[in-house]
Design a protein around this nucleic acid. Structure first.
Lengths: 214, 214
DNA sequence: TCCAAATATGAACGTTCGTCAAGTTTGAGT
DNA sequence: ACTCAAACTTGACGAACGTTCATATTTGGA
């Protein structure tokens, strides 16, 4: 009678959880500092206090580890955005705030900037881990007549790639940072809003995000 | 009295031009087949009939060579689009046709699909090599009152990242190919067009592109 | 206490990029 | 026609890194 349920987590399970979390933390720290390519598997293993081969018991490849790191970052930022926007009444405003926050975080936070190459993986992590919130907002705003974007998944995909790509361009100095509002406006246009309505939505006063824990 | 002008091209200059072109052709062929990472510098050199070290006399690194390949592809496609659209009277229609063509080429042409990872480099090459045409169209269409996108550079940047990113998603099977029209519509919305006008522009009958020479 | 299965370890492997010292070609000057 | 310095080519080599694998260790039930 083996229950899959509580099972107060034996030593193996506990060690495995610790190792996996330590590896992601370690990889995130080193990749944030040196970029994904600049981080070596050996250094990641050492910082997580495991042998070099052990990493491959948890992740099939360096790429898979990088994906895990990016997803963890996306999930974490999603939750921080939710904390601030759960008092908003207009789902369109939640969406606009989310877009802007990711853009600003990606361009201002040193730890994100290093990860901007590999933008295709980043955009994908963003689509999947922030999607549940963003797509919800797009659909609610469409239902309320604020947006015209019932095909929320498609719009969100476009938005992800554009957001990450533009963050890259801002970091590279090809776009001026003050133009973030213009970018938000154009991304809002994709939802079916006209230019004036998008501008209005993008320039409303905004609350501040809580700093990241840990 | 050294003139910088005609100078009937000595053997050195001729060999250099031949080598550079052979290297780009070789790299394009191999990278199209195996992807950028899958192509090794040695194989590229052999196919171009030069020594392994010679590649580095023409390109500082593998990345620089990859950029040269991508730019060559973008320039070449730009010219083919120009050939077909130079009879169009509406610059908005030229822009719409260009966007759609890149999307379709990137998702249908096997040789492009292999290059879709590294999307950040691809989007950048696209921004620079197709930009002169696309930005011209955006500005003309804005001046004619068809678009509201005087900040053409920004809109074009967004469009590049979105186009390449979405091509990647289509190739990966995350978006259905028939939705290309929807993508074009949303990208046109970014120019200030409303949903109806964008849909109209995206669904007009289109001429066919000439197949690539060579 | 013992044992088989699961997991950890780090030395070793194979691959690849980029460098470099030595060799070859080029074309201007004599 | 000959000389020579500059420019270019070459392929063997160094270094770095991701991944594998034989061996050692740990685990938890019998």
């Amino acid at each position: 009678m083996t229950v899959t349920q509580p099972e107060p987590e034996g030593r193996v399970a506990r060690r495995q959880r610790r190792n996996r979390e330590a590896l992601i933390r370690s990889a995130r720290a080193i990749m944030s500092e040196k970029g994904i390519d600049g981080a070596t598997m050996l250094e990641i293993a050492e910082r997580a206090d495991v042998g070099a081969g052990t990493v491959y018991n948890y992740f099939k490849s360096k790429d898979e580890l990088a994906v895990a790191v990016l997803e963890e970052m996306m999930s974490s930022l999603s939750l921080r955005i939710e904390q601030v926007t759960d008092t908003f009444e207009d789902p369109a405003q939640v969406y606009a705030f989310g877009i802007r926050t990711v853009l600003e975080t990606a361009t201002r936070d040193i730890r994100w900037r290093q990860l901007l190459n590999r933008s295709e993986v980043l955009a994908d992590a963003m689509y999947r881990r922030m999607g549940p919130y963003a797509i919800r907002d797009l659909k609610q705003a469409s239902a309320a007549g604020r947006f015209q974007a019932e095909d929320a998944e498609l719009v969100w995909r476009l938005a992800c790639h554009a957001i990450i790509g533009v963050s890259l361009s801002i970091t590279a100095g090809e776009i001026e940072e003050p133009r973030i509002t213009d970018v938000v406006v154009r991304l809002l246009c994709m939802t079916g809003l006209d230019l004036a309505a998008a501008t209005d939505l993008a320039t409303r006063p905004r609350p501040e995000l809580q700093p990241e824990a840990g």
